[in-house]
Structure formats: structure tokens, C-alpha cells
């Protein structure tokens, strides 16, 4: 077997890569072609060559069977195939970091859980406790906001107008609603450090408020009336 020189189209580098482990083959780029030089064994001859020549000792290239040279081998920077065709790691199949935020959404659900809290107005609660029996108050707790909204918690709830909420995993959800999808609930309690010391009160539009545990006090007539007195500027 004698040495041959061939030229390949750049697109055929993938075919050449099949012989990448051959140490007797070198390659170089010249004039938009890949020049390959090596021993013309069967594997070499199966390359999709554009031209094939036999070089002589003076770097003259002879076409197969020709007695006169077709051209002189140009000065090329020959490289072993391992360098000419470097390897690279394939693109990672691992999931990328999520950069888009998922908006928390609530959707109606068919559940029939008992309501645990009711969001109402301070005036409404104040009117209720004035006439309500004490036995219906002593199991209740309430937290008031600066805007005179008040969240009353405890079962049974007082029969007053307001938005009722169910409680699960320290998340207060509007009655008849759940997360969409429901699995968000466990993610929220895992991710939100504040969920250990706060109740998370969600609204139907997905917005939520954090209410510290320490904001709740027992419902007594005096506690409600004193709180209402501090909110007279918004009542």
C-alpha cells in the first residue's frame, strides 16, 4: 500500500472523523477543502474524495495511472486527525435553571372543607360582639389591620358577613378555592420561611398577605372595643 493525498469537502469531516484514531493519517485545510494524506488502505479509500493523487518524493502529485504530475503539493500545516478534529462534550441533558417566575393562581375546587376564618370589617365584628353570647366568642381569635379589616378565626365561626377561608398547612384559602395546580401548596410551605411564624392569607387573584401569629388575640368584648377605638381614624 502506498501513500495517497486526497481532498474532501468540509462537510465530509464527519466521515473523516471515523478514522480519527488513525495515527498515520494527517489533514490540513487549504482553499476551502480538506486535504488528507495517509496510507491508502481500504478505510482510506472509502473516504468521499474529490481528487486522489499519489505523491512522489518531490511532493509532486500524480493522478491514478498518470505518468506526469498534475500539481505540486502545496505547503500545508498538516495535523494529526486527533488535533484536526478535536472532540467537545455534548450539550448537557440536565434541566436548566428556571428563569421565568410562575404566577400563583387560584381556581374553584369542589372541596367542602369547613371554614376556619372570616375576613370582615371591624364595625361588623364590633356590632356582633355587642350582642353575641360570650360562649360564642371565647374560642375565637382576631387580628385587625390598620385599614380596619379584621380576620376572625375559630370554629364555629360567627354568623357575620365577610369572606370565609379554609385553613391547611397555615395557608388560609378563600372557601371553595385551591391552588392551580394544588401541588403549589406544599412548595409554598417549603419555600416560604415565614410560613412557620405567619399565616398566609390568599386572595382569589393570587395575591397574599402574611399575618404574624402574634397578631392574633382572643376575642373578648373589651379587646374588640379597645381595638376599634384605636382605629377610629379609619372607621
Amino acid at each position: 500500500m502506498t501513500e495517497s493525498v486526497i481532498t474532501l469537502l468540509p462537510a465530509d469531516i464527519k466521515v473523516l472523523a471515523l478514522l480519527r484514531t488513525r495515527v498515520d493519517i494527517v489533514a490540513a485545510r487549504h482553499q476551502d477543502l480538506i486535504w488528507v494524506k495517509g496510507i491508502a488502505d481500504n478505510a482510506f479509500r472509502q473516504l468521499p474524495a474529490l481528487n486522489t493523487w499519489k505523491p512522489d518524493g518531490a511532493n509532486r502529485l500524480f493522478a491514478p495511472g498518470a505518468l506526469t504530475p498534475a500539481l505540486t503539493l502545496p505547503e500545508l500545516a498538516w495535523q494529526p486527525l486527533t488535533e484536526f478534529i478535536p472532540v467537545s462534550l455534548p450539550a448537557s441533558g440536565l434541566p436548566a435553571f428556571a428563569t421565568a417566575r410562575h404566577a400563583v393562581k387560584l381556581a374553584p375546587c369542589p372541596g367542602t372543607e369547613e371554614s376556619f376564618a372570616i375576613l370582615t370589617e371591624m364595625r361588623t365584628l364590633e356590632a356582633y360582639i355587642a350582642a353575641a353570647p360570650q360562649v360564642r366568642l371565647r374560642h375565637l381569635r382576631f387580628a385587625a389591620s390598620a385599614s380596619a379589616r379584621v380576620l376572625v378565626a375559630g370554629v364555629p365561626l360567627p354568623p357575620i358577613p365577610g369572606t370565609s377561608y379554609t385553613l391547611k398547612d397555615r395557608i388560609l384559602m378563600p372557601a371553595g378555592y385551591d391552588f392551580d395546580p394544588p401541588v403549589i401548596r406544599s412548595l409554598l410551605t417549603e419555600k416560604l420561611e415565614a410560613a412557620r411564624t405567619h399565616f398566609l392569607l390568599f386572595h382569589v387573584n393570587g395575591a397574599y398577605e402574611m399575618i404574624p401569629d402574634t397578631s392574633f388575640v382572643h376575642v373578648t368584648r373589651s379587646a374588640v372595643r379597645l381595638t376599634a377605638e384605636t382605629l377610629t381614624h379609619v372607621l
Binding site: I129, A130, A131, A132, Q134, T220, R221, S222, R225, L226
Partner: peptide, 9 residues
């Protein structure tokens, strides 16, 4: 005056 707050009505 204090106790009145705890009375109903």
C-alpha cells in the same frame, strides 16, 4: 369604666 367594655350591649 373598664368593666363596661366587657359587658354586652
Amino acid at each position: 369604666e373598664d368593666d363596661c367594655r366587657e359587658m354586652p350591649h
